[in-house]
């Protein structure tokens, strides 16, 4: 279904990395892990954002300074200001029946929905290994939040300033060699997700990825976020897709479309 934006007061802003701030709202959105909201900055734009930590009283939305709208949002929006929140929308992460242990892999600002999933999984008694990757130590987000949930946290940085030096997908390879894993979940740079998806499929482990595409309506009407060749909508059939299905799409890891619908190579 579709909704109008709800003006919510920003209760707290946390600088969680040099380019990511987490905005805390007092609202139980009742979103399921993996879903997203449209965040409206009046007079500027409205952009899709994944949902991070959620509980009965609060919802946390981690927003990276990654474009014109989010840059202005970082600069102008202070505690006490209001943002328009529309949603939640989109598909959700699925935990396989009887799952005992899963891996979540967050790359940079793709990490927030992994935290939401980790909350849900740990509440169901499922063990969670959280691999958090970033360019360097300062850019690792939500480490303490994952630890608070009892997750086993493994870090990975490009420069080796924290945890494994290299790619988080290498950490995943090692985990999959050593442990019996029932589900793999990832959100982050698309090429990283392609790698994760392929590892999961090769090992026959249930795997899901969370994709991002330019969106307008957010509820499946405008057709702006459709993927080739199936034509599915990332706002409706996505953002969460089963890895095997995502890999059937020739644009996965290759290209995306801008506001005009023109193909932009990754």
């Amino acid at each position: 279904m579709a909704y109008l934006p709800v003006a919510l007061k920003v209760e707290e802003i946390r600088q969680d990395s040099p380019n990511l701030k987490t905005y805390v709202f007092k609202r139980n959105l009742r979103a399921k892990p993996g879903q997203f909201v449209m965040v409206w900055v009046p007079g500027v734009d409205e952009v899709p954002m994944s949902i991070g930590w959620q509980d009965e009283e609060e919802v946390h939305i981690g927003i990276a300074d990654a474009g014109d709208c989010t840059h202005l949002l970082h600069e102008k929006i202070k505690v006490g200001d209001k943002l328009g929140i529309r949603g939640p929308y989109g598909s959700v992460f699925n935990l396989p029946e009887g799952a005992k242990k899963i891996v979540v892999i967050g790359g940079g600002y793709g990490t927030p929905p992994m935290l939401s999933l980790a909350q849900d999984a740990t509440a169901k008694g499922i063990e969670v290994i959280a691999i958090i990757g970033a360019r360097s130590k300062d850019y690792i987000i939500y480490e303490d939040w994952f630890k608070k949930l009892g997750c086993e946290v493994k870090l990975s940085t490009d420069d080796g300033s924290a945890g494994h030096k290299g790619y988080s997908t290498e950490v995943l390879e090692k985990v999959l060699e050593e442990e019996k894993i029932d589900g793999i979940y990832t959100c982050g740079p698309e090429l990283m997700m392609v790698n994760v998806a392929k590892q999961g499929v090769a090992k026959d482990i249930y795997t899901e990825v969370s994709l991002e595409r330019y969106m307008k309506c957010g509820f499946g009407a405008c057709g702006q976020c459709c993927m080739d060749n199936t034509g599915i909508r990332i706002c409706k059939e996505g953002p969460v897709l089963e890895a095997k299905y995502a890999l059937e799409h020739p644009e996965f890891g290759k290209y995306t479309r801008g506001p005009e619908g023109i193909i932009e190579e990754m």
Binding site: A2, Y3, L4, P5, M38, W40, V44, D45, E46, V47, C69, G84, R86, M215, K216, C217, F219, A221, C222, Q224, G258, P259, E260, G261, I262
Partner: peptide, 28 residues
């Protein structure tokens, strides 16, 4: 030619239906 259209919000629903100002975006 290509058109970006208007910034979001561009498509909304309300009690009586839908309102949109996508602004004729398209690849041309």
């Amino acid at each position: 030619e290509p058109r970006k259209g208007h910034p979001n919000p561009t498509v909304l629903t309300f009690q009586g239906g839908v309102i949109n100002a996508v602004g004729l975006s398209g690849e041309g």
